[in-house]
Amino acid sequence: MVDQSLSVPKYWRRIPQYYRLTALKCRKCGRVYFPPRAICDCGSREFDEVELPRRGRLIEFTVLRSVTSDFEKQRPLIFGIVDLNGVRVLGQLVDCPNPEKLSDNAEVEVVFRRVKEDSDYGIIYYGFKLRPLKGCW
């Protein structure tokens, strides 16, 4: 069998977070956690699942040129922190050929993209990325 260097179950169980940014909202204090947590800072363990909004603002970004083996052919990678209605998320920025032109608090949308793949024979890993609406080309 083709050697699988990445784990399938490890990916599969996080599909709600990777695909739809499924977070947990504390029933007691309303705080929203992404990634999910077992217990809220307020002590409560009761949560409801909520999806984070698909529009937000860019807080900060950097362009990574020295990437890991899974991303060799995708370099450079742009990483940004975005604020999605008060919840901050780290993700790749895409469709942004000139990130240095991005303005402070640039508006971004959450998109669905390929993240990596396990050689030509293993599975393809999908997940959310962040796409500036304008201003970086």
Partner: peptide, 12 residues
């Protein structure tokens, strides 16, 4: 882009 395929576009 390099990370787009018929799946990702179908989702969008």
């Amino acid at each position: 882009y390099i990370d787009e395929d018929p799946v990702t576009m179908a989702v969008e």
